Simulated assay, not measured.
Amino acid sequence: MLTVGTERELLEAVLDESRADLVRCLAGLSDADARRRLVPSLTTPLGLLTHAAAAERSWFQRRLAGLPSSEWDGYAYGDDASFGYEDDLTVTAAVQRFEHACARSRAIAAGVDDLDSEVHHERIGVVTLRWIYLHMIRELARHAGHADILREQIDGATMTGAQFGVPPEDAG
C-alpha cells in the first residue's frame, strides 16, 4: 500500500488497490455462485466485474484515448447492459478481461503527462485525467463493497482490511 508519493502515484496506487479489491471479492467463487442474483437488480459478482471492465474501457479507451469502437477491447458503456455477460463466461475469463482492460487503461494514462489534461464527455462536459482517476476509484471501491456484501451472502466470506494487508486494528 503506497502512502507517500506524488499526487499521480497515489491516485494510480489507490485505483490499482480498488481494482484488486474487486477481483479479490470473486476469488474462489464458483462460476455458478458468481452468477447468483441476490438482489432485484442485475448486480451479481460476475456482473460487477463485467461492468467494471466496461467502465475501464469507457473512460480510458473510449474517452481518454478517443479510440474508435473498433479498437475497444469490448463493451465500453456503463449502462445496465454492462452488467450482462455470455452464458459460458467463467470467473477466470472475466478476471482476465478485466485485468486486460486495466492494463490498457494504465498504458493509455501513462501516455498523458498532465493530470489536468482534458477530454470531453457528451453528458457532463469537460473532465480531466485527475477526475477520471477519482471517478474510477469511487466507482470501483463502491462496486468492491457491493461484491463484498454479495460474497458474504453467498458463502459467509468477508473481505476485511486484514485480507487486504491492513492490520485489523487499522481496518475501516
Rank of each mutant, 00 (worst) to 15 (best):
M159A: 09
G161P: 01
V119K: 09
A157K: 14
H120W: 10
D155S: 12
M159W: 08
P168E: 11
R130Q: 04
R123T: 11
H143E: 07
V126L: 09
H121K: 12
E122F: 10
A171M: 13
P168I: 09
D170K: 15
T158G: 11
I154L: 15
T128E: 02
V126D: 13
Q153I: 02
Y133M: 00
D148T: 14
D170A: 15
R138M: 03
T128I: 05
H120F: 12
I149V: 15
A147I: 02
T160D: 15
M159G: 08
A141M: 01
R123F: 09
E152V: 10
A147N: 05
A162Q: 14
T160M: 08
A162D: 12
V119I: 15
G156T: 10
D170P: 00
W131N: 01
P168D: 14
A141W: 02
W131C: 00
G165F: 06
Q153Y: 07
R138F: 05
G125Q: 12
R123L: 11
D148G: 13
R130T: 01
V127W: 08
I124S: 08
P168H: 08
T128H: 01
R130I: 00
V166P: 02
G172N: 13
I154M: 09
R151K: 05
G161N: 09
E169N: 12
V166F: 08
E122S: 14
G156Q: 12
A144S: 07
L150M: 10
T160V: 10
P167M: 06
T158D: 08
H121P: 03
A157F: 10
I149Y: 10
G125E: 06
Q163W: 09
A171T: 07
I137T: 03
V126N: 10
E139N: 13
D155A: 14
I132Q: 02
H146Y: 14
T128N: 02
T160E: 10
V166H: 07
Y133W: 02
